[in-house]
């Protein structure tokens, strides 16, 4: 089924929460680690929490790295959440871990600063840098739930759909073509988070036109 939303099953902690949010917005997702299901997905979602090394090991052990790379390379609808974003970059400072390298950039630890608690845990604002189908109806500066100790960076400003500030300003939502990835957890971000999932599902299904890249405001 070409319009099937597939959530990648690799023992990620937020797997069920992501699937529940997708179900809530009417996506009827399946949870699978089967490369054939992944190849046939209408939209693919990579959840993830925890450590970078565990994430990459779990993906590798399940033979998921090539199927994910191939799927993304074909330019098809993809959503990464939290560690599912970090895994897309080239590498992570967390244990010097090599990641998928689908997007340019690396993952860095929050800087040590007085009063800056790590993990970055709680609701923080995300400011949109350009218009995109997944942010429709969600005002710039809306609050999303975050919980992470490492943050993404990228040398390519055209990829930065959303930005958040916590000690440093970091790209909290990345987008390129039909790929979107969020450091925050829309599945735990109340109504705006559900709207984000609903937008993603509709965009993936309808094959909405590509957003105009980085038409910066």
């Amino acid at each position: 089924m070409r319009d099937r939303v597939v959530v990648i099953d690799y023992d990620a902690g937020n797997l069920r929460s992501v699937a529940r949010a997708l179900a809530h917005v009417g996506a009827d997702p399946i949870v699978s680690a089967d490369p054939a299901e992944i190849a046939a997905a209408g939209a693919l979602v990579l959840p993830g929490v925890g450590a970078a090394a565990d994430t990459m090991r779990n993906l590798r052990e399940r033979g998921l790295i090539e199927p994910i790379r191939d799927y993304i390379a074909a330019g098809r609808p993809f959503l990464g959440v939290c560690m599912g974003l970090q895994a897309l970059l080239e590498r992570s400072e967390e244990g010097g871990q090599e990641c998928l390298g689908v997007l340019p950039g690396e993952v860095r630890r929050f800087p040590a600063a007085p009063g800056l608690k790590v993990p970055h845990m709680g609701w923080n604002t995300v400011e949109w840098r350009f218009d995109h189908p997944v942010t429709e109806g969600i005002p710039s500066g809306s609050y999303f739930y975050f919980v992470h100790s490492y943050h993404p960076t990228t040398p390519d400003p055209a990829l930065v759909l959303g930005e958040t500030e916590y000690g440093v300003r970091f790209p909290s939502v990345l987008a390129r073509g039909y790929l979107v990835a969020t450091q925050c957890h829309p599945e735990k971000s109340g109504r705006d988070g559900l709207r984000f999932y609903a937008n993603f599902v509709r965009w993936a299904r309808e094959g909405a036109p590509m957003p105009a890249a980085a038409a910066a405001p």
Binding site: R20, A21, H24, Y145, V147, E187, S189, G190, L194
Partner: peptide, 8 residues
């Protein structure tokens, strides 16, 4: 709760 509540 997890089915119906979308905050942590």
């Amino acid at each position: 709760t997890a089915e119906q509540v979308f905050i942590p």
